[in-house]
Simulated assay, not measured.
Amino acid sequence: MGMPDAEGHGPSDGLPDLPPEWGRVVVPDDASALAEEARQVRRELRQARRPAAGRRRPAGAAWPSVGLPVLVLLVALLVTLTGLAAVTWPRSSRSGGAPTVLPYPTAPVGPLPALDLVGPDDAPVPLRSLLPAMIVLVDACSCAEQVSTAAAAAPPGVTVVTVTEDRTAASATAPGVRPLADPAGGLRSYLHLSAHPGTAAALLVDRQGTLVRMVPELGPVADYRDDLARLAG
């Protein structure tokens, strides 16, 4: 059954029920009376079909805000980068793993400075007067066995010298070894070489005073035998 219109009138015969909020619906006898309304409807339909880029923003109207989508995209990007950094970031070694080994600094190539070392009698000994030489820095480790092995392998004419910063420790450690002291630490300062406990560094210097090789940790003689033999040339 039809319902009364907004003014209480009953439904017209043959017409379906209409929403009450439409109010009273009047159907004119002449269809030309609806021409203006038809033009208005067609104009609204054409405007609705136009591309969004071609539309003009009505006065006082604002474009839809894009701030929220951009914010969501930035948050997602930040989360992705944080997860990637957590996966690729280097982690500290766990207990029981191998310790981190830092490389020794590269020794300068060229003539050693004209330093004066100190003998057991506190007399100055020019470094250049000992060349060619194998100079072993023993202030962090006496390493008597390694020093003795080096002295036995040194060819004639090559001096094996042990150097420490403590004058009182400058004493012979093996036959054929000359103990000297470097109280000012001039050699280590020139080489930028710090002492590592339990190790002895060795310098192989030719007769021109050129440092041909630095052995950061004195070990088996096979590691430096060839260079030691060339010093006598």
Rank of each mutant, 00 (worst) to 15 (best):
Q47G: 14
A48H: 11
A48N: 05
A48Q: 06
R49M: 12
R49L: 06
R49N: 12
R50L: 08
P51C: 01
P51R: 05
P51S: 14
P51T: 01
A53H: 05
G54K: 08
G54R: 06
R55I: 00
R55H: 02
R55Q: 04
R56K: 07
R56L: 07
R57A: 10
R57T: 13
R57K: 11
R57C: 06
P58M: 03
P58Q: 08
P58F: 03
A59P: 11
A59F: 11
A59E: 14
A59D: 12
G60I: 03
G60P: 03
G60T: 01
A61F: 07
A61S: 03
W63F: 08
P64N: 06
P64S: 06
S65F: 08
S65D: 15
S65R: 03
V66T: 10
G67S: 12
L68Q: 13
L68G: 12
V70R: 15
V70E: 09
L71N: 04
L73T: 05
L73R: 10
L74E: 02
L74A: 14
V75I: 08
A76C: 13
A76M: 13
A76S: 14
L77A: 15
L77P: 13
L78M: 11
L78P: 04
L78S: 10
L78H: 14
V79I: 09
T80G: 06
T80V: 15
T80I: 12
T80A: 09
G83C: 08
G83R: 09
L84K: 06
L84D: 05
L84W: 06
A85R: 15
A85N: 11
V87T: 08
V87L: 06
T88R: 13
T88N: 13
T88Q: 10
W89M: 05
W89V: 14
P90S: 01
P90H: 07
P90A: 02
P90K: 08
R91Q: 12
R91C: 01
R91I: 01
S92G: 15
S92L: 12
S92C: 03
S93G: 15
R94A: 07
S95A: 14
S95K: 09
S95P: 15
G97S: 14
G97P: 05
G97R: 09
A98S: 14
T100Q: 08
T100E: 03
T100H: 09
T100F: 10
V101Y: 08
V101A: 12
V101P: 06
L102T: 15
L102K: 06
P103E: 01
P103C: 02
P103N: 08
Y104S: 05
T106H: 07
A107H: 09
A107Q: 02
P108M: 01
P108H: 01
V109T: 14
V109R: 05
G110S: 08
L112H: 02
L112A: 04
L112G: 00
L112Q: 00
P113M: 00
P113Q: 00
P113V: 00
A114V: 09
A114R: 04
A114D: 15
L115H: 01
L115N: 00
L115Q: 02
L115K: 00
D116N: 04
D116Q: 09
L117W: 02
L117S: 07
V118K: 07
V118P: 15
V118Q: 11
G119N: 13
P120M: 00
P120A: 00
P120E: 00
P120K: 00
D121Y: 04
D122S: 05
D122E: 13
D122N: 08
D122T: 04
A123M: 02
P124Q: 01
P124Y: 02
P124C: 02
